[in-house]
Write a protein that binds this DNA or RNA. Structure first.
Lengths: 194, 194
DNA sequence: CGTTTGCTTGAATTCTGTCAAAGCAGGTGG
DNA sequence: CCACCTGCTTTGACAGAATTCAAGCAAACG
C-alpha cells in the first residue's frame, strides 16, 4: 500500500528514497480503508488527518442552510485529500469528506507532517511544489468561476481533468462547478448535440 | 521606504531583523513608484517581479475576448502583488496589473526570493505562512463564488475586507466578485435601503 | 466651466434554478 | 429470467436572478 506513495514522492526528487526514508514514512503514515459512502471527516469535527489517496475516489463538500450540498473538491489516486484549514488551525471543519468508491488512504497527522518536513527533504520539496501548484490551480478555478459562463467552465473542467469527468457522476461535477445539475444537462445538449 | 517592509517582516518572527538582514533586503528589493493608471505588468509579458506594496492600491485583471475586464485580485498597503504563476514558471502572464492610486512598491526578482528564502529565516517563515493563508483565503473565495448568491458574496466581502470596500470603486468590487456592476448597485439597494 | 468617472435606474432579454415527472441502466434477490 | 430498487440523467414548465443597453445624475477634477 505504501509503494504508490513512494513512487509519488520519488517524482519530486533526484535520488530515490532510501530504506530509512521509507521506514520513516511507514512510521508516520497510517493506512486506512473506506468503503463507498463512508466518511473520512464530518462537518463539525476537527480534521486531525490529511490523507494521500492510494486508490479510490473522494469528495469534500459542505451542506448549506437549505440542505443543499456544495462540492468543494474532488480527489482520486495520487491526490491529497483533507481540509487544510481545519488541519492546520485545529478548528472545526465545515466540510464532509466522503468516499465515492472503495478507497485506500494513508493518513498523516499534523505532527507527522511537521516531522517529515524536518527529516525528509523529499517531503518538504513535495510540499513546497504542491503549495505552489495548488495555489495556481485554485487561482484558475477562481478566475473561471468568476468570469466564465457555465458552459466554458464545464469545457475547461473537461479538458483540464478528463479523469475526474469519467470518474464522478455528472451531478457531482455540476456541484463542483457551481452549476445546477439540470442546467448542466441542458448546457451539454445545447453545445454538443446541436 | 523599506521601513514599512521591515515592520511587516518583523511580525513573522520573534527576534527583530538585524542590520545585516536589513542590508540584505535593501540589496534584494528595488523601490519603484507607479502613478495612477500606470502598469506594473501587461498581459503577454513575463512577470519578472513580484511586488510588496508599501503604499497605494493596485488591481490585477484580465481582459476577455469580448473586451470585458475581470478583476482577479486587489491589493493595498502591506499586501503582495504579482502573477505568481508567470513569476514562478516564467510563462507569459494573461493579466494586467495596474496602479489605482499613486503607489510605492518594492520589486523582487525570482532570484531575489530564492536568495532570501535561503539566507533570511524571516523571509521563508513569511513565505510559508503566506502560502498557507492565501491557500485558505482563495478556498473561501472559491466556495463563496460557487455556492453563494451575489448578495451573500458582497456581504462576505464587506465584512472580510472593509478596507478594500472603501478604497476601490464599486464597479471594481463587482468585477472582483464576478457580478455585473449594475447588478451590484441593485443588490445594495434591495438589501440595505429597503 | 466642461469633462471624466462612477453610481443609479428602467425595460427588455437571456440565463439559471426549482420542481416534478419520466426514462434508463445496473444490481439484487426471489 | 423477472420484478424491483436505486442512482443518474434528461426534459418541460415555470419562477426568479442576473445581464445588457441606454439614459440620467452627482461628485471630482483639471
Amino acid at each position: 500500500m505504501y509503494n504508490a506513495f513512494f513512487e509519488y514522492l520519488n517524482r519530486f526528487i533526484t535520488a530515490p528514497l532510501s530504506d530509512r526514508d521509507k521506514a520513516l514514512i511507514q512510521d508516520t503514515f497510517t493506512p486506512h480503508r473506506l468503503r463507498k459512502k463512508q466518511f473520512m471527516l464530518q462537518a463539525g469535527e476537527h480534521a486531525r488527518y490529511f490523507a494521500f489517496i492510494v486508490k479510490g475516489a473522494m469528495r469534500m463538500f459542505s451542506v448549506d442552510d437549505q440542505g443543499n450540498e456544495h462540492i468543494v473538491r474532488l480527489g482520486i489516486e495520487n491526490w491529497w485529500m483533507g481540509d487544510r484549514e481545519s488541519f492546520v488551525l485545529a478548528t472545526a471543519s465545515p466540510y464532509h469528506i466522503e468516499a465515492i468508491e472503495h478507497s485506500q488512504l494513508l493518513y498523516v497527522s499534523k505532527e507527522g507532517t511537521e516531522r517529515l518536513a524536518k527529516e525528509l527533504p523529499a517531503f518538504s520539496a513535495m510540499k513546497e511544489q504542491l503549495d505552489e501548484r495548488s495555489q495556481m490551480a485554485s487561482n484558475r478555478r477562481l478566475t473561471s468561476a468568476i468570469s466564465a459562463t457555465a458552459f466554458q467552465r464545464y469545457a475547461d473542467f473537461i479538458s483540464c481533468y478528463p479523469e475526474l469527468a469519467e470518474r464522478f457522476p455528472q451531478h457531482s461535477i455540476a456541484s463542483y462547478l457551481g452549476i445546477n445539475k439540470d442546467t448542466l444537462s441542458r448546457i451539454k445538449r445545447q453545445h454538443f448535440s446541436k
